[in-house]
């Protein structure tokens, strides 16, 4: 049987590290909006996840 990670945050991509702390997944710091979206797109494609926008400069990649 295949075991997968589901309903879990796989990565956090942020413009501001102060807004994120701890957690069980990697945090990526982006310099600007463009890098933020690009990094999250790549991470989503690699992990097969979905990008969600928390609308405070933080994007998360989740798997559902």
């Amino acid at each position: 049987m295949e075991i997968k990670i589901n309903d879990y945050i796989l990565a956090i991509i942020t413009l501001d590290l102060k807004k994120v702390s701890g957690g069980g997944c990697p945090v990526f710091l982006a310099a600007d909006e463009e890098e933020l979206h690009k990094t999250s797109l790549y991470l989503a494609k690699v992990t097969g996840g979905i990008v969600h926008d928390l609308e405070n400069g933080i994007l998360i990649v989740c798997k559902h």
Partner: peptide
Amino acid sequence: IMNVGLPQN
């Protein structure tokens, strides 16, 4: 429905 993070999507 859901949260869509990427502007192009």
